[in-house]
Amino acid sequence: MTYQASPARYEDMVYRRAGRSGLKLPAISLGLWQNFGGTRDYPGAFAILGRAFDAGITHFDLANNYGPPPGSAEELFGKVMAHDFKPYRDEIIVSSKAGYHMWEGPYGEWGSRKSLIASCEQSLKRLGLDYVDVFYSHRYDPNTPLDETMGALATLVQQGKALYVGISNYPEAETREAHRILSDLGVKPILHQPSYSALNRWIETDRTIDACGELGIGIIAFSPLAQGVLSGKYNSGDTKGSRGTSNNPFLDAAKIKPETLAAVDGMAEIARSRGQTLPQLALAWVLRRPEVTSALIGVRTLEQLDDNIGALSNLDFTAEELAAIDKACAGGLTDGKPRW
């Protein structure tokens, strides 16, 4: 049966401008980092992707190495684009990135011109697209001149292979310099994609979020649920299928501090007082900042997707609620600042 998008898909979604660009993104975007690789079949993937688009989620975030295995998320999404989403291409924002390890040899990672342009070409083939809407430098490369990395991004726009460019995991000083270089090239970065959650506030302490606000760069926050910690599953002990029990090098459930689990309990109590689930509270907290364009979710089930979207029904906080969240999280904060 041919997929037909819901005619009501734009009725309830909130859209926010990406910095000072003309591009608007849904307040909730869907990432395909770990749940849409070789372990996910087409029907299961499309059930989530189609439900997301029907709910007004127009932005789907990928990278060259998303899977597992690397590249498989783009391949799977490319099949969805060709089979189901093709009539809606102009309603959809597809983003990809390059910077982390993708292939062997000296050009398969980091930020050289060779690596970024070759990677974008490979991503377009896997996706079956002529262009991506946003292409990111996935991480700052301390060993490549920044003007080379940013020059490669500008070239991709000039070649029509990307409509916009962004950066991800860049600290404050490097964010400012990337913006300066790209502005001189006539291609301003419109998005910065850092990790950001109530338990991981490095972009606040580093002042990266302030720099983005000043420069007109929108923030799209990844891991707003702190890689599942703010789902509450690690507190309940129901971790079946969760990221902490998967082969995820970024999270080891056994190493979650007791202070962090206590912070989650405190957040859950505040969520109940607001009539929200814990994930909804965590997403609303990220979206409270005007610099934040979108919160990037990763879900395994339709139930998780629907619950996350439900955050949009209550995005306002009182000063007392924000103070209570700060107090609850004080002992459980983690240092998520990127390391090279």
Rank of each mutant, 00 (worst) to 15 (best):
Gln4Pro: 00
Gln4His: 10
Ser6Lys: 06
Arg9His: 12
Glu11Met: 06
Tyr15Gly: 01
Tyr15Glu: 09
Arg20Ile: 03
Gly31Gln: 08
Gly31Asp: 08
Thr39Cys: 02
Pro43Phe: 00
Gly44Leu: 02
Ala45His: 03
Leu49Asn: 06
Arg51Gln: 10
Ala55His: 06
Ile57Val: 14
Ile57Asp: 07
Ile57Pro: 02
Phe60Ile: 05
Glu75Trp: 05
Phe77Lys: 07
Ala82Tyr: 02
Ala82Cys: 00
Pro87Cys: 01
Pro87Arg: 01
Asp90Pro: 00
Ile93Met: 08
Tyr100Gln: 11
His101Val: 15
Gly105Thr: 12
Tyr107Leu: 11
Trp110Lys: 07
Trp110Ser: 04
Gly111Met: 08
Gly111Trp: 05
Gly111Leu: 11
Ser112Asp: 07
Arg113Glu: 13
Lys114His: 14
Ser115Asp: 03
Ala118Pro: 03
Ala118Ile: 00
Ser119Gln: 08
Glu121His: 15
Glu121Pro: 08
Gln122Ser: 15
Ser123His: 11
Lys125Tyr: 04
Arg126Lys: 15
Leu129Tyr: 12
Tyr131Leu: 03
Phe135Trp: 10
Ser137Trp: 03
Tyr140Ser: 07
Thr144Asn: 12
Pro145Lys: 07
Ala154Asn: 03
Thr155Phe: 07
Tyr164Thr: 01
Asn169Trp: 08
Thr175Ala: 05
Glu177Asp: 09
Arg180Ile: 00
Leu185Met: 13
Ile190Val: 13
Pro194Ser: 12
Ser197Thr: 06
Asn200Asp: 15
Asp206Phe: 06
Ile209Val: 09
Ala221Asn: 05
Phe222Trp: 15
Phe222His: 15
Ser223Asn: 12
Gln227Asn: 13
Gly228Glu: 03
Leu230Arg: 10
Ser231Thr: 15
Tyr234Pro: 09
Asn235Tyr: 04
Ala262Glu: 15
Ser273His: 10
Ser273Ile: 03
Gln276His: 12
Gln276Met: 15
Leu278Trp: 08
Gln280Arg: 08
Leu281Ala: 08
Leu283His: 13
Trp285Ile: 09
Leu287Trp: 07
Arg289Thr: 03
Val292Gln: 11
Thr293Tyr: 04
Leu296Asn: 10
Glu303Leu: 06
Asn308Ala: 14
Thr334Trp: 14
Thr334Gln: 10
Asp335Thr: 03
Gly336His: 06
Trp340Ala: 10
